[in-house]
Simulated assay, not measured.
Amino acid sequence: MPRGVGAVGEVDAVERFRRRIGVPGLVDVHTHFMPERVLRKVWAYFDGFGPTTGIEWGITYRQEEAERVALLRQFGVRAFTSMLYPHKGGMAPWLNEWAADFAGRTPDCLHTATLHPEAGVEEYVRKAVEAGARVFKAHVQVGAYDPADELLDPVWGMLAEAQVPVVMHCGSGPVPGTHTGPEPVERLLARHPRLPLVVAHMGMPEYTEFLDLAERYAEVRLDTTMVFTDFSERFTPFPASELGRLADLGDRVLLGSDFPNIPYPYVHQLEALERLGLGDEWLRGVCYENGARLFGL
């Protein structure tokens, strides 16, 4: 673990950031908690990421689950998510059962659920919504599916009607997938314009195209996960020419971190946002107010 990570110094640094911008806490819409055996496979994937891509991706926070929860609380994170996702059919129902149990024993975790285009998806998504799911995760890259797949059409309609947000990894970073990019999402939104869609990683690297969709559809939001950090700026820099549009969309940008699966300390995401120079009002919205409003906190 890098020097200082998880130590008093880092907790103090996050607290100083919160005090500087004037927020009572943080709302992080993109954190990962999942069954341990699944999480270990995710970590193994990132451990092997460097040799296959040339991009070293060390996991900063490999503590046990309880320690990771405690650390988020020390950082002042008032609400977070258990982003989890299936890579094949048949996984989503039992992942949802695990997530419901996790949310039940972790009251500051927003009850998270997931889905996959398969027979029975409408039934288990309805079950999750009725059980109190407050946010869904869709991972187009890992699941290798078209978000506009007709099997998912009734599900998107259900979530739009219930106004349950969906955090969707649909950009082509870090590795493109068959159905990543803005075009499939544009087809989805054309059919379900009221779907509360949170574009993970701001659609990295197709930042401009996903900003276009956010401007066109009032229920589209963007999360900051890994964007603007030194790590991401080396490979997929956010275009400086788009900062004005990002400022204008400040009420629909949400803090996301990818904790614990990040190759740098948590506070770096916050510092990366601050150094954009978009002002404390923008930062307050991104780091707390927008998420609190979206989830009724």
Rank of each mutant, 00 (worst) to 15 (best):
G9Q: 01
F49R: 04
V167Y: 09
Y288M: 08
S257H: 06
L115F: 10
L278P: 11
P265L: 02
A119I: 14
N290P: 14
L273D: 01
R293A: 03
G132T: 01
V11L: 13
R62L: 09
P174S: 08
H139Q: 12
H268V: 09
I21W: 04
P184R: 02
G25N: 07
V29N: 01
Y217M: 09
T60R: 09
Y61P: 06
L278F: 04
T53K: 02
W98Q: 03
A138N: 14
E65D: 13
P24Y: 10
V27M: 07
C287D: 10
P263E: 10
H111C: 13
A162G: 04
L197Q: 02
Y85T: 14
F49L: 06
H116E: 03
V129Y: 09
L278K: 00
F231P: 03
G76S: 06
E56N: 14
I55T: 08
V140N: 08
R191Y: 06
R105C: 09
F295S: 01
M91P: 07
F75T: 07
F210I: 05
E271I: 09
P107K: 01
N290H: 08
E281R: 13
A13P: 06
P35Y: 04
V140P: 03
P265F: 10
E65L: 07
W98A: 05
L152A: 02
E67N: 00
D212E: 12
E206V: 00
A103M: 03
V135Y: 05
P182R: 14
D28P: 09
L297D: 01
R293H: 05
R187P: 06
V185Q: 06
V199K: 02
V164K: 11
W156Y: 04
V227L: 15
L197R: 01
A272M: 07
M168S: 13
D258P: 09
L195V: 01
V69W: 12
N261G: 12
D230C: 10
V199Y: 01
G173C: 03
W156F: 12
G157K: 08
A162I: 10
E242P: 04
V286P: 04
G285R: 09
T112N: 04
L151S: 14
D101N: 08
